[in-house]
């Protein structure tokens, strides 16, 4: 079936099998491999993307659900498309060593951005609770929590400045 949606700001139209998962569509057909697959039970969160502005697990989303929707993946998050500039949340992860092997990172960042958009400046407890659906095996979460708090504050400050 043919589906049309906005992918990282660009109109996209693709022919998909109804059984195709969004992870497969992104990774195998649209060459966007930043969205990762870390489990098969919708637990790990490495595949989190924003569907119509809300974080969802793209490994548990059928491609037809994208029809008419807006999808944002880690590749579309950057400060300036095509440049090396980072989004404030990405920058906060870099600044605070919020990643090690990098595999959970795209999902962590996408979840964190949504959390910050939803709640503004975040407390430690809100961050820890908000990351409930994202598993990291490397960092022990401490620097991720610090990163998300800093990134949320930076996003908040940037919005206030606008």
């Amino acid at each position: 079936m043919q589906i049309s949606f906005t992918l990282n700001g660009r109109p996209t139209s693709v022919d998909v099998a109804p059984s195709m998962l969004v992870t497969e569509l992104l990774r195998e057909h649209l060459n966007l491999t930043g969205t990762h697959i870390g489990c098969d039970t919708s637990q790990c969160g490495a595949c989190v993307v924003h569907l119509n502005g809300a974080p969802v697990k793209s490994c548990t989303l059928l491609a037809p659900a994208l029809d008419g929707a807006t999808l944002l993946t880690i590749e579309g998050l950057q400060g300036a498309p095509g440049s090396n500039r980072l989004h404030p949340m990405q920058e906060a992860f870099r600044e605070n060593h919020g990643l090690q092997c990098g595999f959970c990172t795209p999902g962590m960042v996408m979840t964190a951005v949504a959390l910050a958009q939803d709640k503004g400046v975040l407390t430690e407890a809100e961050v820890r609770h908000g990351l409930e659906g994202n598993i990291c095996r490397c960092t022990g979460y401490q620097n991720i929590v610090v990163s998300v708090m800093a990134g949320a504050a930076a996003m908040h400050a940037a919005n206030a400045g606008e």
Partner: peptide, 9 residues
């Protein structure tokens, strides 16, 4: 229920 991403779907 679940986690934020699960609750959105």
């Amino acid at each position: 229920i679940g986690d934020p991403s699960v609750r959105n779907r």
